[in-house]
Amino acid sequence: MSRWAIEVNGLNKFFNTNHVLKNIDIRVPFGEVVSIIGASGSGKSTFLRCLNGIESIHSGEILINGVKITDKKVNINIVRQSIGMIFQNFNLFPHMTVLSNITLALQKVKRMSKAESEKVSLRLLEKVGLEEKAESYPIQLSGGQQQRVAIARALAMNPQVMMFDEPTSALDPETVNDVLDVMKELAREGMTMVVVTHEMGFAREVADRVVYIDEGRIIEDGKPEEIFYNPKNPRLRDFLGKIINV
């Protein structure tokens, strides 16, 4: 095992001429929960998407558990199995039952038998409190339930790192907590997590570390209490003022 779960050196990313990520350096040890905060358009989601290769990068390098995913020779499909990705809009497969959503990659990627993959899936559904929904279709579930299925689906691949891209932004307020509870449980179990979020409560309570990104740069990086109670950067103070008053 490598020393760092995630290591990013000198990452630059452009959308055409728009320089969206500027010289990002970050190291995340195993077991750490990192919250990434910042205004919309700051580049935080793009940064997360670069980490599992959904977005290409312009320069720099990204290592996940010591594997340089930015190296062309690396098989990204194998690396991605060790990275769980949770999306704002869940992205469950609507034509499949909840159970099949989870078993698909187990069978096709991990080459598990049907019976074995279903056993694993049901155990994970139980973990997120939805084992009775195994035969439902995503459209029959609430947003919060869909997101928990998405988490179970990602966990099934036994990832070393879990990434969350604004996992609660598209949810009804009453279902947000169910999702956050599952995430807190994961954090307690020692999962390495990177969470792009507007949930300052989560960032404050659960994160070991908070990273503030503004205009494509990491402006502050520290313990939640430093970031929330003693922000040095005026833009961060301004941002926190707006968010916390909401």
Binding site: I54, N77, G84, F87, N91, V109, A150, M157
Partner: peptide
């Protein structure tokens, strides 16, 4: 994106 991030 979701399918690819599962390793498919």
């Amino acid at each position: 994106e979701a399918a690819r991030s599962l390793g498919l």
